[in-house]
Nucleic acid binder design. Structure first.
Lengths: 321, 321
DNA sequence: TTGTATGCGTTATCAC
DNA sequence: GTGATAACGCATACAA
């Protein structure tokens, strides 16, 4: 494979000049530039990126960490990739599948300078582990987290969940079942929203069990089975994700129930499946969150001040409520 | 950041010895090894991977190219990642979203030695473009392709589609509508399977229009609308993907029709959504395909002979037929 | 506007 | 067993 020296030799210039041409430096005469570019073209030469990275001390690539995929996360990934690309950064996606070791692969790549930064959508390892890697480069998360070494671009789920609950209330639902996802600060905020909600409207607590750690279609199916067995049934179910809502809806329909006549169902995230099944849900601007994440990383990389979007939730009314 | 020289200095040895320790070479006395490892630990030292890659002329990382995500592709990605990791290779995922430029990012990374090889699940650029990059490293695809520079781990869709059609026939369906996906060799094989199928059973061609390039939920919804309008309706619909089948099913149910009483629907791929909606579908071993892909790449990288799995289709009967 | 020389952090080939 | 030292391919400070 051709290298910069060969180009220099063939073009009858020094490697420094070739390098200048490649990096679009000023102060190269048009004539020599032409000549160098011609040889580069002829030899199909590309700079060895490993050498460049070594020399520059940066790779201009950013890792994105997720546990698994779903349409919401993929929108985030897509937006982040696009905005990063515009600033000349590549992204690489790490799907940890919930395995700590897979997440550590990404973390270690940051440590060994293969990555300049990390955007951690959903973590697997404990925060203190991840935090210990911030000394090797910027790490920004999408999850709710209060840390001074790991900035977060989360959106306050309290507001979003309250929006959902208030809407259900306005439609006349009173006995509401909450389905929460993984135990994190987001969930705590949603719980707080529910507490405030029943207090504000002078409702008494439903006495329904707490569903936690439910986020998949399969979880939804289980919850539907629970619902079917109850004598004192919830009038509406406010779900952690559209997937859970989808699972509930389909399982209930299979069992002969009708939505929203028998029970109202609210999704969350406004993903494709919510559209497919006509689920009322909560939309929020993940694209802006992705852009904010990149802005924060960029600013940490070149110690500037980030310019951020402000963010808001939105209710999408469909036919499940 | 600490480098190998600093470690050498502090341990009172040469960089060569440190390198030997790091790379687990034999012929290092236990005593010096201890001493070096201790300093490495103290300074939290990691080799700069860019330097290693530069020196070795390889990065031990492989790119995976996909257009978008769905559960089928993600199973492939997951399996490939896992098997690659076991051999000490990292993977990076490129979601092209159908944009040629995004795919070129991956291709160019191969060219500039950031990647040792590529696993192209679904291409975006023309094959001849992709083919021109094979001189920079192994490229293996999951799509059906006959090329001597790009090996493929596809499965013969003729068999799979025939399995679907024969099953429908056995259930008594005769007037079958085909929904095909993007115009590729896979689709051609499915078309061929259908031709052979009607001929084998002495059926006459349905005269239904050809649906091509249909692969999403939304496409399915459109097809459902078409179905509703027909007077001479297909008795069954054999779909290109589970997503299409899902779109059709839900749209028909919204319009008051019943599946499988009014029409039978077959999915393809056996993804999560097929489970969710109880779709009869065709399963096939993507995990084995991923392992084959890696085996081929590995063998091209160290010019050995790959050991491959043999592969077969499987029908999953559910309630949509 | 161009060239020389040096260093980025490793690995590997010698020699000892 | 261990240590010099020469690459790997590029970018840049300094000279000219």
């Amino acid at each position: 494979m051709a290298n910069i020296q060969e180009i220099a030799r063939l073009a009858g210039v020094s490697t420094a000049t070739v390098s200048r041409v490649i990096n679009q430096h000023p102060y190269v005469s048009d004539l020599t530039r032409e000549r160098v570019l011609k040889i580069i073209g002829q030899l199909d030469y590309v700079p060895n990126y490993n050498a460049t990275s070594l020399k520059k001390g940066a790779t201009r690539s950013i890792g994105i960490i997720a546990v698994d995929y779903n349409s919401l996360l993929m929108s985030l990934v897509r937006s982040f990739h696009t905005i990063a690309q515009q600033s000349g950064f590549n992204t690489m996606l790490f799907m940890t599948n919930g395995e700590c070791s897979k997440e550590l692969v990404a973390l270690e790549m940051l440590r060994s300078r293969q990555l300049d930064a990390l955007f951690c959508l959903v973590r697997t390892n404990e925060w203190n582990i991840i935090e210990s890697y911030t000394r090797y480069g910027p790490i920004v998360t999408w999850q709710r987290l209060t840390s001074d070494s790991i900035p977060s671009v989360f959106m306050d789920q309290y507001q979003g969940y309250m929006l959902s609950l208030e809407y259900l209330y306005s439609k006349g639902y009173r006995k509401i079942l909450n389905v929460f996802s993984s135990k994190g600060l987001n969930t705590l905020e949603r719980i707080r929203a529910y507490r405030d909600f029943i207090q504000m409207h002078g409702l008494k607590d439903s006495g329904f069990p707490q569903f936690h750690n439910k986020m998949s279609i399969y979880d939804g199916e289980e919850i539907a089975q629970w619902w079917i067995k109850q004598t004192d049934k919830p009038e509406a179910i406010s779900c952690s994700t559209d997937e859970v809502a989808a699972g509930i809806l389909m399982e209930l329909q299979r069992a002969g129930f009708t939505v929203p006549d028998d029970v109202g169902i609210m999704g969350f995230d406004n993903t494709d499946i919510a559209h497919l099944l006509d689920l009322t849900t909560i939309h929020y601007p993940v694209d802006k969150q992705a852009e904010n994440a990149f802005a924060v990383i960029k600013s940490m990389l070149d110690q500037s001040v980030p310019k951020l979007h402000s963010l808001a939730f939105n209710l999408i009314e469909r036919r499940s409520t």
